[in-house]
Amino acid sequence: MPRVSRAQADLNRETIVDAATRLFRERGLHGISVIDVMAAAGLTHGGFYGHFESKEALAREAGGRAFQQSGERWNAWIAESADKNSARRALIEPYLSAASRDNPGASCPVVAFAGDMCHEAAGSGLRQTFNEGLDRLLQTFGSLMQTGDAAQDRQQALVQFSLMVGALTLARATQGEPLSDEILAAALKFLTAEKAVDKPGPAPA
């Protein structure tokens, strides 16, 4: 059998990571096998270990890519927005949409991976990748808060993003029931209401 060129090997590796990124989001980091990933990539199972030393090594890279994709998508939406408030809405509205609920393979990695992280050792590579990715999303979201105080911006980002993650998780858990749409609608209404946007108060006299 002829050897695969370096360029083809690199392409195959990218195809594997892309397939794993989608599958891990759909089923969780421990919900798929190497055979599943390679089948989705259109490659033979035997070629996996020519690219990755273990399934965990692939999961860490795919998890990092999932967070990178979400971050890039958020930054693109922010760049297209006129101000911080419209940028914040531009993140919240698609996040709490039926499309986001119904397409986990292209949606939030926090919702996809959080359950698995509960069973990961504190110092594991997967936990580190998750924590770093989550913190980057929180930093981006926090930059859109308008309290006038960095610590308060961080608090608002933690509270509001936690609500978003929880709502999307529950909407998926109840998918197909009217309750699922109710959860998304209630969270969206709360987060986009005028009172949910903390703006700097008037300067003291």
Rank of each mutant, 00 (worst) to 15 (best):
T140E: 06
P104D: 01
A59H: 08
K55R: 09
P104M: 03
A185G: 10
H30P: 10
M117T: 03
S54L: 04
D153S: 02
F52A: 02
G115F: 02
L23Q: 04
L144G: 02
G42C: 06
S180E: 05
A82R: 03
A157W: 01
R3V: 09
L158W: 14
A41Q: 02
G50H: 12
D36E: 08
K55A: 06
L168D: 05
G46P: 03
V159I: 15
E120W: 06
A151I: 13
F141Y: 04
E93S: 11
G201Q: 11
R6Q: 09
L11A: 14
V197N: 13
A205E: 15
A20T: 05
A82V: 13
Q68Y: 15
S33F: 08
D198P: 13
E80C: 10
G64Q: 12
A99F: 15
P200W: 09
Q8Y: 15
R25N: 09
W77E: 14
A186F: 13
A19R: 00
D36Q: 10
G176Q: 02
S124T: 04
Q160F: 06
G46A: 09
R88I: 03
A203V: 13
E56Q: 05
M1V: 11
A157Q: 01
A171T: 10
D198W: 15
S86P: 05
A122S: 12
A20Q: 10
A98K: 12
G166W: 03
E72N: 14
A40F: 11
M117V: 04
D36L: 06
V197R: 12
W77M: 13
D102H: 00
E26T: 01
P204R: 04
P202Q: 07
G133Y: 05
A106V: 05
A114G: 13
R127H: 01
A90K: 05
G201A: 10
T192D: 07
L23R: 00
A196R: 05
D153G: 02
V165T: 11
T169W: 02
L188I: 12
A87F: 00
R6H: 14
E56P: 01
R127K: 11
A41Y: 09
T44V: 12
A150H: 04
Q146E: 10
L96E: 00
A185W: 01
E56D: 11
C118F: 15
M38D: 04
A19G: 09
R22M: 00
D135Y: 11
G42V: 02
E93F: 08
L29G: 09
A39T: 10
L96Q: 06
H119V: 04
T129E: 11
A112K: 06
G46L: 07
L188P: 00
F190Q: 14
G63D: 07
A57K: 01
A90P: 06
